[in-house]
Design a binder for these strands. Structure first.
Lengths: 221, 221
DNA sequence: CTGCGCAATTTTTGATCAAATATCCCAAAG
DNA sequence: CTTTGGGATATTTGATCAAAAATTGCGCAG
């Protein structure tokens, strides 16, 4: 009776889940630029798996709006139009503040401390001009808030919106640099510590509008 | 005498697309009840296709929230909790009125006439007590509004919400019958004809709240 | 003679399936 | 109560076919 040997190759995650997560990150942080095509066979080679898991990951991300069918069966990262960005601004303003209201009500002191650490890392990335790190920590900040809010449907919507504007954030930051980046995270955290849900929601709304406006400005040129 | 009659309709569409649409309808109109499991092999037999297309359809619908991974690798139609319904009420109220604002601005007289016809069919279904027809026409009414609004991202969110509460609508109607069903479609159409976007949006908000409240009431018992 | 377009061919990519593999659940036995 | 098979289900792969893109080569006109 041999006990379980420690030589598990990877964690017990299915291949399609691995592919999904990898591809999701590539898109979310702009490593695959808007307009760029994604091919099944390219990914089977890149990630060394069969085509079925790749196929499933692509379908999933297409359903989430992170990818788009380009007519004949080509799949690309969508290029946002001005109208698209305005829809995204509306949707984020409609959904995200409510998530922050819930998060403020449910957050423990440890939760808020973890958020503050993420925000510190984010500021560090800004002063270092590290765009990739900035994008990741910024996402991480909001993502953590969704988890705290514990509202799976609203969170799923918010995550879906991230997948749509994430790729463009990379483009915007690439042009603007990190110096001009502002956020309302401090104000949000302050309001959360005071359990002032309304003020926290307003701060996040301001954060959303500021960030999305930069996308809009960059796109208008 | 042909032996294989493998649904040759709609040639040109990929099998995974066909499977997706069929399964989507089954879920949306409650023909697969909340809590009920969906198996790959069950669908390959039912729709007479290989497992790859079925797999993709399931992933897609899972990403849209119409299906849910039940821990291990079982996939079921989600059973809504009270919290879920409250999230859905919030999200619908946040998104749908804006779609109606856009639809009111863009609707042609023909669009409005088509909507009126759908609403007439809906009323007819109610007096006949035909729940299946009621659910379809009710969906069709809102779906048509999304198309007119021409806002793909907001529409995708709204469609995703439908997939989440659609199955429960069937359950609710099954208990309550069609006699107590009210809607604000007439008021919506009247406001749209007058190009009064605000009033149309308010009417739809009322429609949403009425409908979702019934779900909430049915669930509370 | 030289470029240009068009059509046929080659190559790449996507779609589907059936077999092989891995995993999980349940029930029966110790 | 734990362990161990067996059955059912999901997962993954590789092969095969179909469709679209890329390339080639040919004829024609300037």
């Amino acid at each position: 009776m041999t006990k379980k040997v420690k030589s598990e190759r990877q964690v017990g995650l299915p291949a399609h889940e691995i592919v999904y997560r990898n591809l999701r990150e590539l898109i979310l942080f702009g490593e695959i630029a808007p307009g760029q095509a994604v091919t099944i066979q390219g990914l089977t080679a890149r990630l060394d798996v069969g085509m079925t898991p790749v196929r499933e990951a692509i379908r999933r991300l297409t359903a989430e709006g992170a990818l788009e069918f380009q007519g004949n069966r080509r799949v690309v990262v969508p290029v946002l139009t001005i109208d698209n960005v305005n829809e995204l601004i509306f949707a984020r303003q409609a959904i995200e503040p409510q998530l922050i209201v819930l998060a403020t009500q449910k957050a423990t002191p440890e939760d808020i401390r973890a958020l503050a650490e993420i925000d510190a890392a984010l500021d560090q990335a800004i002063v270092e001009g590290d765009i990739a790190a900035y994008l990741r920590w910024n996402y991480q900040f909001h993502h953590s808030l969704y988890k705290i809010a514990d509202a799976p449907i609203l969170a799923a919507i918010a995550e879906g919106l991230w997948l749509r504007y994430g790729p463009s954030l990379r483009v915007v930051c690439g042009r603007v640099g990190t110096s001009s980046l502002l956020d309302q995270h401090q104000a949000t955290l302050k309001a959360m510590r005071a359990k002032d849900a309304q003020r926290a929601a307003d701060a996040i709304r301001e954060d959303v509008v500021q960030g999305m406006d930069q996308v809009l400005q960059a796109l208008a040129k």
